[in-house]
């Protein structure tokens, strides 16, 4: 078990940002799911193999709307401006009022502000390049994160309700965030940002159709 990884080379869904976005076949997938659900008893039956499962929910490969970069950039810059004013104030105060350590402190604070600005400018693109998601017959899969990569699998049958959220900036850009809620307190909601309104509605309807009335 220890060093041998049978799947290490065969499939690595993570490190492939260049993959082409391919919309999933929304119309046909729910039926596929119901058929396979009827075949296998989840409690008594054997564990599913990786390959079997991948058939019903595709690997996350759909990308967000590219306009989400603008959205993240704008909201990032807005919060940077607030922080920047604060840090700039501190730097100026240090520069002019502190006799001895003033200059190094001011430079350090200024450097932090500049680094934060650089991060604010580059992180939206990095995040956009990482983001992938897919909605299949029974799962919502999403992969995201810049340094810390997270890949989440949420069973559609567990979703309690679904919100479509549009902030001011998002509305100007024609974007929508889809929020799904599951039961529980910790990690109980998941945000799928940067969707066009049309796609968000499509996804919501797709999820509702796939979920059925199974949830109390």
């Amino acid at each position: 078990m220890s060093g041998i990884d049978p799947l290490e080379n065969s499939r690595s869904p993570d490190d492939d940002p260049a993959r082409e976005p391919a919309p999933i076949d929304a119309a046909s997938s729910p039926e596929v799911g119901h058929e396979s659900a009827a075949e296998v008893d989840p409690v008594a039956g054997p564990a599913f193999s990786h390959e079997q499962l991948s058939a019903s929910t595709p690997e996350p490969q759909e990308r967000l709307d590219p306009k989400v970069v603008v959205y993240w950039l704008v909201s990032g810059l807005i919060s940077w401006v607030f922080l920047g004013v604060l840090l700039g104030g501190v730097a100026l105060f240090a520069w002019f009022k502190w006799s001895r350590f003033g200059m190094p402190v001011a430079i350090a604070v200024g450097a932090i502000a500049v680094l934060l600005l650089v991060w604010t400018l580059i992180s939206p693109t990095l995040a956009y390049n990482r983001w992938r998601f897919s909605v299949g017959a029974d799962l919502l899969l999403a992969r995201y994160g810049i340094l810390f990569i997270e890949e989440k699998a949420i069973p559609i049958s567990r979703m309690q309700h679904i919100d479509l959220y549009r902030g001011v900036v998002e509305r100007m850009l024609g974007l929508t965030t889809l929020i799904v809620f599951t039961a529980g307190t910790e990690g109980a909601h998941f945000r799928l940002p940067g969707l066009s309104l049309l796609r968000a509605r499509e996804l919501r309807d797709l999820i509702l159709a796939a979920r059925g009335d199974d949830v109390i």
């Binding site: 799947l7 290490e8 564990a47 599913f48 029974d138 799962l139 699998a153 559609i156 949830v215 109390i216």
Partner: peptide, 24 residues
Amino acid sequence: LTRSDAVRLQRELAHTAARARFVW
């Protein structure tokens, strides 16, 4: 976990969970 093991396990658990009926 090895990455490939983790992916496989995650998908297995999630799919099995999705097909099992949830009740409060």
